[in-house]
Computed example of a mutant assay.
Amino acid sequence: MQSDTAPAHTAPAPGARTSGAPGPTVPTWDPGQYLRHADHRARPFLDLLARIPEPPGRPARIADLGCGPGNVTALLADRWPEARISGFDLSREMLERATAEHAGPTAGGGSLDFHPADLAHWIPEEPYDLIVSNAALQWVPGHPGSFAAWIGWLRPGGTFAFQVPGNFAAPSHALLAELCESPRWRSRLGGHGARSVHQLDPAAYLDRLTGLGCTADVWETTYHQLLHGPDPVLDWVKGTALRPVLTALGDDRPAVEAFLDTYRELLREAYPSGPRGTVFPFRRIFAVARRDA
């Protein structure tokens, strides 16, 4: 929702204030905006899905943590149409979209359903064959601390797999943070553009997962995405990294337009448009951990 994805995840607590500056805002998510780049956002999940082994149970029991609008959760049903699949998310807007468009029986006799959950505190209530998360855990501080509990609820031979963005040092994020801390916006938006990096590096994920008794495959990929249309990088971040800022500015349309005008120019310089579109590099980190049978 990861940053990307997707949005369905733990967000900063509302209303916090430090030294007179506004604290982080719980973002309001826009499923339609997020899905404007659905193909690029779904591709890393397809690459992750290709590396996930067959689940030990039939029909499989699957959890999707941070399911967002459900379009990626539905890809699980395409691969395992007999499975019982549950998506979990913190965003009411995302869950409403997922339920309306994807919930119900699947082609192979399985089912798709969606439920509210804060991933910082989610613990399975039954054994799973697969627990998967796509571009969500970067929103959850301390998420590696949950791995032991989640893996403990996998059936022997089950898999825990996830993908997180690894692009928080990219210009799209660095420029946003700098703009929020600039003299014009600091009193209103200080702290809203900065994203604490909650993910580990690939080697640390590998160490954590193998230390929990799993056979793990961890890798990273940088996608050089070719985006199209006017100001496509701005359009991308409107669905993810910009959500806390837009939520904080609320209905103050002059402020929203003034902020976006400045940020737009910074992004145009950082990501110049070419004759065939705008190249937007995006690094992602992947892990597939199989609990030993």
Results as ranks from 00 to 15, higher is better:
155 R>K: 13
175 L>Y: 02
164 V>H: 08
250 G>F: 14
160 F>D: 07
31 P>W: 07
210 T>M: 02
107 A>Q: 09
122 W>N: 01
286 F>N: 07
44 P>S: 03
275 P>Y: 09
288 V>R: 03
15 G>D: 15
26 V>Q: 05
16 A>E: 15
290 R>W: 01
77 A>Q: 03
93 E>H: 02
221 T>D: 12
18 T>G: 11
135 A>W: 10
64 D>E: 09
154 L>K: 09
215 T>Q: 14
278 T>F: 09
187 S>M: 06
62 I>A: 06
63 A>L: 13
15 G>W: 10
92 R>F: 13
251 D>A: 14
38 A>Y: 00
73 T>D: 03
264 R>V: 01
231 D>R: 06
36 R>E: 13
194 A>C: 02
246 L>D: 01
278 T>W: 04
101 E>D: 15
290 R>V: 15
137 L>W: 14
42 A>V: 14
11 A>N: 11
28 T>N: 07
226 L>V: 05
210 T>Q: 13
122 W>C: 09
112 L>F: 07
137 L>H: 04
145 G>E: 15
45 F>Q: 08
117 A>G: 07
78 D>N: 10
212 L>A: 13
243 R>P: 01
27 P>A: 14
262 T>A: 15
40 H>K: 04
107 A>C: 07
105 P>V: 13
200 L>K: 10
202 P>D: 14
202 P>W: 15
283 R>G: 02
249 L>G: 02
238 K>R: 15
148 A>W: 00
37 H>C: 09
117 A>H: 03
33 Q>P: 00
291 R>Y: 05
154 L>S: 06
223 Y>G: 03
87 G>N: 06
129 D>S: 11
56 P>E: 08
167 N>V: 03
254 P>K: 01
172 S>R: 08
286 F>D: 04
35 L>M: 13
124 P>K: 07
130 L>P: 06
288 V>M: 11
152 G>S: 06
244 P>D: 00
227 L>Y: 04
286 F>H: 15
215 T>L: 08
54 E>V: 02
101 E>K: 01
4 D>R: 12
232 P>W: 05
67 C>P: 01
132 V>A: 11
25 T>L: 12
9 H>C: 15
271 Y>K: 01
60 A>K: 04
211 G>R: 00
25 T>W: 12
124 P>E: 11
261 D>I: 00
230 P>R: 15
96 E>G: 03
178 E>L: 07
273 S>C: 13
59 P>H: 09
199 Q>V: 11
132 V>W: 03
104 G>S: 02
131 I>S: 01
217 D>V: 09
208 R>P: 03
188 R>S: 13
156 P>V: 09
29 W>H: 05
165 P>C: 08
243 R>S: 13
221 T>E: 15
221 T>L: 14
148 A>P: 12
80 W>D: 10
55 P>N: 03
283 R>I: 02
166 G>T: 00
122 W>D: 05
267 L>Y: 12
130 L>H: 07
121 H>I: 04
122 W>P: 08
82 E>F: 12
172 S>M: 03
277 G>L: 05
56 P>T: 06
19 S>V: 09
293 A>M: 04
13 A>M: 10
285 I>N: 06
117 A>W: 03
226 L>C: 13
67 C>F: 03
94 M>P: 01
57 G>Y: 01
49 L>N: 02
126 E>T: 07
286 F>Q: 08
109 G>H: 11
293 A>D: 13
163 Q>E: 11
